[in-house]
């Protein structure tokens, strides 16, 4: 196939359902030939590059269930199609999920954040997805609907490969549920960039709650990685150098950074270590 740089988008039909039912039934009958549209910040780029070639585009933005943003008991619900700019306005998100808030604040740029969504970020399932690390450490559950059944997917099971998630072709993410911790919880998200506006060269998230400590890593493996290091931490205190070496060994075995044009494997490894140190510093006491 000739290498052509396209200015146009391929031909497709578009549908804008206003109920979830309608969306699910259109998706069900056209599942292999359709694509879901939220903010379009990944989708339109892929369409223009012809990496995808759908017949039908289903615009999810008018579906009420996907636009919820609220606390429900001890769970916080983020609708899959809520623009990130709106999520950032939520006081609850800011208060309860510090690492997610930081990640959202570092994602794309302010203009794109009026469009980009978490549903889309998970839909693309890039190894560098900025929301993935925070959602992992915050024990998020992905709420998914299809015409016949709905299910909840624990975030650790959601990613299955580079730009691959475990959704069936007839499924739509409706919301993300995140438990609100009653414990004194501390979390952080750190992103390595080449300048102020960049995709993550690596992302490191950390959380400490209820005497548990977890780390999550993005852009250093085919999928986002969660590492539980509770066993190495005592009394919510920072590890000493010896203990840190053990933690780092564990992390190093779990990740597999690559060499690419954005950074070398060596630098990614080094910076993962430095950012892990930094993350632990911030969530643990001296």
């Amino acid at each position: 196939m000739n290498q052509i740089s396209h200015l146009t988008l391929p031909e497709f039909k578009i549908v804008t359902p206003s109920t979830l039912r309608e969306a699910l039934s259109i998706l069900d009958t056209n599942n292999t030939r359709s694509k879901l549209l939220a903010g379009g910040t990944d989708l339109l780029v892929d369409l223009r590059n012809r990496t995808i070639n759908p017949n039908i585009i289903i615009d999810l933005k008018n579906i009420p269930e996907l636009n919820e943003l609220k606390q429900k008991g001890d769970i916080f619900v983020i609708g899959a199609a809520v623009p990130i700019a709106d999520i950032l306005k939520s006081k609850e998100v800011r208060k309860n999920f510090h690492s997610l808030y930081t990640a959202l604040n570092e994602m794309c740029d302010e203009i794109l954040r009026f469009r980009a969504t978490i549903g889309g970020n998970l839909g693309t399932a890039s190894p560098a997805a900025d929301t993935a690390g925070p959602l992992l450490i915050h024990r998020a559950r992905i709420i998914v609907a299809s015409k016949k059944i709905s299910r909840e997917i624990p975030i650790q099971e959601f990613f299955i490969g580079v730009k691959q998630n475990c959704l069936m072709p007839n499924e739509i993410i409706t919301a993300i549920h995140i438990p609100i911790s009653t414990e004194n919880e501390k979390s952080v998200f750190l992103k390595l960039k080449r300048n102020s506006e960049d995709l993550a060269l690596i992302g490191v998230s950390a959380i400490n709650y209820n005497s548990q400590t977890k780390l999550a890593f993005t852009a250093v493996a085919p999928i986002p990685i969660l590492v539980d290091i509770t066993a190495y931490i005592s009394g919510n205190k920072r590890p000493n150098e010896e203990k840190f070496k053990e933690i780092w060994k564990l992390v190093k075995n779990a990740i597999s950074p690559i060499n690419d044009l954005r950074a070398s494997r060596e630098y990614r490894l080094h910076m993962t270590e430095i950012l892990t140190r930094k993350a632990l510093k911030e969530v643990l006491q001296k």
Binding site: I14, T16, L37, G40, L44, D59, E110, I111, F114, R115
Partner: peptide
């Protein structure tokens, strides 16, 4: 609100 028009389909702005 500011948005980048190259990434918006015209049918979205009904």
């Amino acid at each position: 609100k500011p948005m980048k028009s190259c990434l918006v389909l015209s049918h979205e702005i009904r």
